[in-house]
Amino acid sequence: MSVPAGYYLILAAALFSIGAVGVLIRRSVIVMFMCVELMLNSVNLTLVTFARIQANLDGQVLAFFVIVVAAAEVVVGLALVVNLFRLRASTDADGVGALRA
């Protein structure tokens, strides 16, 4: 017996949801950012699984582009975090609430 593709999709959905919850509950901006990375990764897992289901490589190419985008995003994001820290020595995202609506 083999593994139905749906199992991979369920795993990816679980990882995506965990990442989304993490963004909502964590206060450290760096960890929130890591959770976004987790979400992007779960989407990649979905894409690769669909690539197998659809029997073409397009999904894998899409996942490749997602990795590129994620890398670029992390670079800018971490530069912002470092700068934010220099201005205020704390990762507390609630501090970012001076601007709350």
């Binding site: 139905p4 749906g6 369920i10 959905a13 289901i53």
Partner: peptide, 21 residues
């Protein structure tokens, strides 16, 4: 989110035929 995503995505792909499509 998990329940709806899992149900929506995995639903059609749980059978044996799903291994390749």
């Amino acid at each position: 989110l998990f329940v709806s995503l899992a149900a929506a995505t995995a639903g059609p792909f749980l059978g044996d035929a799903s291994v390749c499509g």
